[in-house]
């Protein structure tokens, strides 16, 4: 909630009309891939079954991390909440590894 408020606040870009030309006084830095990775890992750590596991970009949710289908859904919801986006079911079904999830989130963040 708090996060989404900040996000929407950041999107409102005040501009002043000076001789028919609007000037923006600041730019928002696009999110870097490293930032996506650290935030994603932190979010995944909040999932009970992942707290002890060693997460890496290559690890597959079901094979390496030993999650069942329920835990995988849980991990994806944790990521959705962290980045304030929704992963459509079709794409969620195809995401098998942490790296794939990070890539999807990174691409979505670039579109903002």
């Amino acid at each position: 909630m708090y996060r989404s408020f900040l996000r929407s606040a950041a999107l409102v870009r005040p501009s002043i009309k000076l001789s028919q030309q609007s000037i923006r006084f600041y730019v928002t830095q696009p999110i870097t891939k490293d930032e996506v990775i650290t935030r994603a890992f932190d979010a995944l750590k909040t999932v009970a079954t992942l707290q002890e596991s060693k997460i890496s970009l290559e690890s597959s949710f079901q094979k390496d991390l030993g999650l069942d289908s329920l835990d995988t859904v849980e991990a994806l919801v944790a990521l959705e909440e962290e980045f304030d986006l929704e992963i459509p079911d079709k794409i969620a079904d195809e995401i098998k590894t942490v790296g794939e999830a990070v890539n999807y989130i990174y691409e979505e963040e670039q579109k903002l």
Binding site: M1, A48, V73, E74, L76, V77, E81, D89
Partner: peptide, 28 residues
């Protein structure tokens, strides 16, 4: 799985920490 996802998404929406964590734990 869809139901599980929907439930969790709603659980995350609680502003109060205790309600949120309880709902998540209870669903899980």
């Amino acid at each position: 799985l869809k139901l599980y996802k929907n439930l969790l998404e709603k659980a995350y929406k609680f502003d109060n920490y205790n309600f949120r964590e309880y709902a998540k734990r209870r669903i899980h």
